[in-house]
Every structure is written in structure tokens, then in C-alpha cells.
Write a protein that binds this DNA or RNA. Structure first.
Length: 432
RNA sequence: UCCGGCGUAGCUCAACCGGUAGAGCAUCCGGCUGUUAACCGGAGGGUUGGGGGUUCGAGUCCCUCCGCCGGAGCCA
């Protein structure tokens, strides 16, 4: 009789086992207790029958309250009435700790603010269990994708000097005698350096944006995967993106579909996510939006509502390509045939989820890059090492950044991105 | 920062035109041998976010501050 995790119970039918976990609910009919037990790997019901256990054990079961930590000893039994197919006939139980106070998270619904204040406990809830397990698989799928293609993982720094896209949305920290340092809002510039050394590179880590955004798509700290490949053009880049996203979806469907079903996700919406993804130029997107009655003109950025409208056209993610250079970052390569637009794409997830990837071919010509930095009124001296990359064997290269939490939200079908990360950081929330 | 909304029991919410605070869950007590947010009976639980004002009377109307939510801008 040994310690077994709930996820392995189906391999121990008829055996005596020990479960170490917590009581997340209890129902009783007087002479029979139904203990709802979780252990971090799954959920199972324990049956305590008055006629089958010592009176002392039955009384002990009666005293259990929400989130009491317990060791359960009993025999595993297949039962069609159980949602997971197995139950445990409890023979003995050992209380590790009875909660000192009533557990704050009840069985009925709670408001978002209350739940976020109790995020450290909310993580124990079923829904969060399933979401964060899917997140875990998405991360594994992402790493696996790059491993299979022989990309090299390059961890980019979190402390950076004043470099990036713009200075308005960086978090400042004091950095010894150097004065101000900034938390990274992207590792892209470093990956561009690394791809000239390793060819195919990626990173995966936290990113920080000091934007005062209050929407269901924004966090101040979020995880981003970026990839950068030397000699890749815009077309190669888009292919890589649609293969990455398809790989992730396929992986999650294979390894975590139970979790998606438990979250109420319609798997059919994910099963068709395979290359190629539809493409739409920025010009076509604007035309489409105008026909739908949106008040947009060529040169405007595409906002949240517009993104939702575009992502609802298709049942796969859609690439929106070649935006006006005016509204995009300085490092994006202008289209040689049409210099007013840049060779970039935003990948919008379907069902209204919107942008999950931002991508572009980068400028590899030294003079053009200097020109664009000046055009955007950025300080040339801050980009000295970045410009260096264009002096020594510069080659065309491309890359992208994928917002992990947005992908998690889309795949899980979440209404808000804050459930897609264990401890969300938003403009007004730093605790827990 | 701007626009809109909300703040009532531990939690989720209700309370009509301004008339004196109510339900479910949770907790405690009792009942029930197949419950699935179990159910049934009973009990305790409130400075209606803070401050000020109007009124015979304010949860309700006005001012102000605080907190939160949603959206915009910006972005993944």
C-alpha cells in the first residue's frame, strides 16, 4: 500500500493505495460521506461508509472542512457514476491540517477582484488547474518545435540599457552607477545579434510593458517567445509562424484535450488549425473594415474592435501583412516595390481573439537603418551595437514575437488573459 | 490619462417613485447510505466603501475622496 498520485489511479484498480492531498468539497447523507479530493494531479471522490469503517474514522471524515489536508487510505474501484471512472473506498484517513480559518473561496461564484486578491488560493480551483496545465503543455510544445528544427535557445537579458522600440513604456529600475536601467520589453535586438552567430535562434521569457492598458488582452508582465532567423525573408518567416502555431495546437489536442474539454472548449474549433493560414494585406483589411462600416482610412492602425472583426472572418488564424511604415517600428524592412509599407505581419487568432504574433523582416542595410532611426526621432547613439550588426556581413533576416498568454487564452477559450498566467501583473495589481 | 459602470452580511447578489435591511452560499446545530455547486429544518451574522450635503426621513438624490471592473490609446 503506497503513495499514488490521482493521475495514476487507473493503473491501480482493485489495489490498496494512499492519496496525499486536500479536501476541496464534501457531501454527506448521514451514514455515507463523499469526499472530494485533489492532489495537484487530478480529482477523485472518496467514499466513507458508516457500516464499513471504524466509527472513529467515520467521525474524523465528518470533521473535514474545505481545504483540509489529508492522507487517504483505501481501495481503488472502477465506477461508472464517477466522472473520472474511478473512486476510492476509504478505509482510513489521516488529517494533516484542518484549516485554522474558513477557506475564503466558496463553492458558489465569486467576483474577479475577490478571486485575484486570493490568487494564491484560487490556483487550487479546478478551472485554474486545467488552464495552467494547458499553459504548461503550450510551453513544452513551443520548446519542442524549436528543438526539432535545431534552433538554439538564446536567453536575452531582462535588464537593458535604453534600447528598444520606444522609451515611453519601459519600467525603470536603478542600476548601480549607471543610473537607470530598463526591464526588457523585447529581446528582439539581442536575437538579431545572436542569429548572426547561430543562424536560427529563439528566446522564451518574461517581458515588461509599462503601458497603462486595462483590457482583457494586456498584462504588464507577460511571457513572450521570440524567434529570429538569418537569411529568412518575410515569406519564410510567415511559414515558420504558421508551423509553430499549428504544432502547438496539435500538441495540446494530443496531450491536454481532457483539460480543454473540462474547460468547456469546443475542440472542433482547434482541430482544423493547420497550414496554410489565410493572408490579407493591410490594404485589403482596411477595405474590408470600411465595407463593414468601420470608420478607418488607409494609414490608421488597426484597433481592438477592428482586430476582432478581422479575426472573425476565418476559422483559422489570419495574417495581416504589410502595414504602412508610418505606424510600425523603425527596424521593419520597407517593401522594395512599395516603400510606403513594410514587410511585416500580425497574426490574429480566430474567434475574436486577435493578435498573438507580431513579425517582420528586419532592415539589414546600414544606411537605410540609420535613415529610419532618424525618421522616427530615435537617438542614434543608443543603437550603436545594433547598427554594428549591419557593418559586418549583414544579411536579410526575419523574426517574430508570440505572446504566450494570448495563445493560452485563445486555446483555452478564456475571456480574459489574466487567467492565463499564474500570478498576473496588471496596472493596479502587484499582489499576490 | 480619457470615457462608461460598480461598491449593501465572509462570498455572490436583491431592496419599485426617498419610507427605516433581504435571499442563496459559507459557518454552527439537527436529519438523511450514491451525493455531483447534494438536499431538508433551525440559528448566528450589517456603521449599506470614507467624508460632507439636501430632506421630517438617504442603501436610494447631490458633491468629494478612495477602491475595483470594462473599454480607448499602445501593444504580444
Amino acid at each position: 500500500m503506497g503513495w499514488v498520485y490521482i493521475e495514476d489511479l487507473k493503473n491501480h484498480i482493485g489495489k490498496e493505495v494512499e492519496i496525499r492531498g486536500w479536501i476541496f468539497n464534501k457531501r454527506s447523507s448521514g451514514k455515507i460521506h463523499f469526499l472530494q479530493i485533489r492532489d495537484g494531479t487530478g480529482f477523485v471522490q472518496g467514499i466513507v461508509e458508516f457500516s464499513k469503517v471504524e466509527p472513529e474514522i467515520f467521525e474524523r471524515a465528518k470533521r473535514l472542512r474545505l481545504e483540509t489536508s489529508v492522507k487517504i487510505f483505501g481501495r481503488v474501484r472502477e465506477d461508472e457514476r464517477a466522472p473520472t471512472g474511478v473512486e476510492i473506498d476509504v478505509e482510513n484517513l489521516e488529517i494533516v491540517q484542518i484549516p485554522i480559518e474558513d477557506y475564503p473561496i466558496g463553492k458558489k461564484e465569486h467576483g474577479v477582484d475577490f478571486l485575484l486578491d486570493h490568487r494564491h488560493l484560487w490556483l487550487r480551483s479546478r478551472r485554474q488547474f486545467h488552464i495552467l496545465r494547458v499553459r504548461h503543455e503550450i510551453i513544452k510544445a513551443t520548446r519542442d518545435f524549436y528543438d526539432r528544427r535545431n534552433f538554439v535557445l538564446i536567453d536575452t537579458p531582462i535588464f537593458t540599457g535604453s534600447i528598444g522600440e520606444s522609451a515611453g513604456n519601459l519600467f525603470e529600475v536603478n542600476y548601480f552607477d549607471y543610473g537607470k536601467a530598463y526591464l526588457a520589453q523585447t529581446g528582439q535586438l539581442y536575437l538579431e545579434a545572436a542569429c548572426m552567430a547561430f543562424g536560427k535562434v529563439y528566446n522564451f521569457g518574461p517581458t515588461f510593458r509599462a503601458e497603462k492598458s486595462k483590457t482583457r488582452r494586456h498584462l504588464t508582465e507577460f511571457w513572450m517567445n521570440e524567434a529570429e532567423v538569418a537569411y529568412y525573408d518575410h515569406e519564410d518567416n510567415m511559414k515558420l509562424q504558421e508551423e509553430l502555431i499549428s504544432h502547438i495546437v496539435r500538441w495540446v489536442l494530443e496531450k491536454a484535450s481532457d483539460h480543454l474539454v473540462a474547460l468547456g472548449r469546443d475542440l472542433k474549433k482547434l482541430e482544423g488549425i493547420e497550414p496554410p493560414f489565410p493572408r490579407m494585406s493591410y490594404d485589403e483589411a482596411i477595405d474590408h473594415l470600411r465595407k463593414k462600416g468601420f470608420d478607418v482610412k488607409w494609414g490608421d492602425d488597426i484597433g481592438g474592435d477592428e482586430e476582432t472583426a478581422l479575426s472573425n472572418i476565418f476559422d483559422k488564424p489570419v495574417f495581416i501583412c504589410n502595414y504602412p511604415r508610418e505606424i510600425k517600428a523603425f527596424y521593419m524592412l520597407p517593401d522594395p516595390e512599395r516603400p510606403e509599407v513594410v514587410l511585416c505581419d500580425d497574426l490574429l487568432a480566430p474567434e475574436g481573439y486577435g493578435e498573438i504574433i507580431g513579425a517582420s523582416q528586419r532592415i539589414h542595410d546600414y544606411d537605410l537603418l540609420v535613415e529610419r532611426i532618424k525618421e522616427k526621432d530615435l537617438p542614434l547613439e543608443a543603437y550603436d551595437w545594433y547598427l554594428d550588426l549591419r557593418k559586418y556581413g549583414s544579411v536579410p533576416h526575419s523574426g517574430f514575437g508570440m505572446g504566450l498568454e494570448r495563445v493560452v487564452a485563445w486555446i483555452c477559450g478564456l475571456k480574459h488573459i489574466r487567467e492565463a498566467i499564474p500570478f498576473p501583473r496588471t496596472i493596479y495589481r502587484l499582489n499576490p
